[in-house]
Each structure stands twice: as structure tokens, then as C-alpha cells.
């Protein structure tokens, strides 16, 4: 399906050993939205109107700012109750992890695993991955470009799925609310968790993946 491959513009010969030239090295700037090449200094893409920047200079600052916000909100998201259940006059509150443990104890091990992966595994892995990507591009020559590009794509693709527990809480409380005796309401952790997911998504989107490859180019030549 992938044939014919496009020819790199400055390749001596296509295929192995052909050194790829970047738009910046050629004195051009590319549109990240529609991929069109433009002369250096062009302000906006002539096709789609997107502002053009050879490299996003503020990328890493914004990545770290959103990353810190995401981590900060992830702490109350785990300390405060995600769900509070009221039966007559007693109220029972459970954090994300407590809720998952209760699910596992009542036999729903699969559900508990989904909640734990989406609410703990993915966010923690995402914090680590974004921090590593942002850290590695400031130290040229470190890490494999392909592996880091794949890592970035995985982070972008999978980060949204953390929202699943928010949806579960919303549906559970909406449904159980319809009954008279039991009331289930989202706790303060729910909004903190949703904000943490949103901030982490913004951190990932602020990252300029071209920085990964700049370091590689400098390392090899």
C-alpha cells in the first residue's frame, strides 16, 4: 500500500543512505496542517491560512506548563472521592483506586482492571512519556527518532481514553439517581481528574515533534 514512496527533495539517490533534507535546511517552511512548502518568512499558509513557524519556539515552555498543571490536578483527583454513594442517612465515599478495589472484590475484576488502566496506568505513563520527550529534545543526540515519534503518537492517541472513568461516573450517577433510595453523586475528584486529562492532552498537543528530529540531525552530521 505504501508504494510509491515520495522522493526526498535533496536525496542523492532514493532509498538507503539518502540523507533527508529538512525544509528549514533548504530555507523553506512547511505548513503543519496541509503540508504545503512555502518560502522562508511566509506568515500564513497560502492554502489553509494556518500561521507558519519553522519551529514552535514556545513549544517546550507550553508543554511544561500544561504538564505541571496536569500533574497538580492529578493529585486531588486521587485523594478526594470520585463517587459518593448515599443510602438513607449514611454516605459512602470512594476514591478512584478504592472504587476499583471494591469492584474487584465484588467479582468484577475486568471492570476494575479497565478503570485502573484508564485512570492510573495511562495518566502516569503519559506524564512520564511527555516529560521524557520534552527532556530528550533539549539534549541532542539522545534517543532514537523513530521510537520517540511512535511514543509521541501513542501518547496523543491513548491519552483521551483516560476520560473513561469520568463517563462511567457520570452514567452511574445519572442512572442510579433515578431510584429513590440510593443516590450516587460525582465527588470533587471527578472534576479534578477531568481537568488533569484535559491539561495533559494540551501538553501533548503543544509538543513540536520536529524538535525530536532536529537533535538527531545535529548528532549525525
Amino acid at each position: 500500500m505504501s508504494a510509491p514512496a515520495p522522493t526526498p527533495a535533496a536525496a542523492a539517490s532514493p532509498g538507503e543512505g539518502a540523507r533527508v533534507i529538512t525544509a528549514r535546511e533548504a530555507g523553506l517552511v512547511g505548513c503543519r496542517r496541509c503540508h504545503l512548502a512555502h518560502a522562508w518568512g511566509t506568515e500564513r499558509c497560502t492554502r489553509c491560512g494556518t500561521p507558519l513557524q519553522s519551529r514552535d519556539e514556545t513549544s517546550l515552555q507550553r508543554v511544561w506548563a500544561w504538564w505541571i498543571a496536569g500533574v497538580l490536578f492529578y493529585i486531588p483527583a486521587n485523594l478526594y472521592p470520585m463517587l459518593s454513594t448515599r443510602v438513607l442517612f449514611t454516605t459512602h465515599e470512594a476514591t478512584i483506586v478504592e472504587g476499583a478495589i471494591q469492584m474487584a472484590q465484588s467479582g468484577a475484576v475486568g471492570i476494575a482492571a479497565i478503570i485502573l488502566i484508564a485512570s492510573v496506568g495511562i495518566p502516569v505513563a503519559k506524564f512520564a512519556a511527555i516529560a521524557w520527550l520534552a527532556w530528550s529534545v533539549q539534549r541532542p543526540g539522545r534517543g532514537d527518532g523513530h521510537r520517540r515519534t511512535v511514543l509521541y503518537e501513542v501518547v496523543e492517541f491513548i491519552g483521551r481514553w483516560s476520560m473513561i472513568d469520568i463517563f462511567v461516573v457520570a452514567i452511574t450517577s445519572a442512572l442510579v439517581h433515578l431510584r429513590v433510595l440510593v443516590s450516587v453523586t460525582p465527588g470533587p475528584a471527578a472534576i479534578a481528574f477531568a481537568l488533569s486529562v484535559i491539561f495533559t492532552m494540551l501538553a501533548a498537543r503543544s509538543f513540536d515533534s520536529r524538535l525530536i528530529w532536529d537533535g538527531i540531525g545535529r548528532g549525525r552530521t
Binding site: M1, S2, P6, P8, A9, A11, V20, L36, S209, W213
Partner: peptide, 30 residues
């Protein structure tokens, strides 16, 4: 710049591929 396209992920410069429907052109670098 006419006739050239740029990879949005890694900034590699390519000649705009001429593809038939169903084809696919990947960045030579990333």
C-alpha cells in the same frame, strides 16, 4: 517551494507525490 511538501512531524522536504486513489505516500524519514 512549488511542488514540494513538508512532513508535519519531522520537517523532511519531499517532492509532492503523484498518487492514484488508494495509494499512500509516507515520509521518507519518520
Amino acid at each position: 517551494p512549488r511542488g514540494l511538501v513538508v512532513c508535519p512531524r519531522c520537517d523532511a522536504l519531499h517532492h509532492a507525490p503523484s498518487l492514484k486513489a488508494g495509494g499512500r505516500a509516507d515520509c521518507a524519514r519518520c
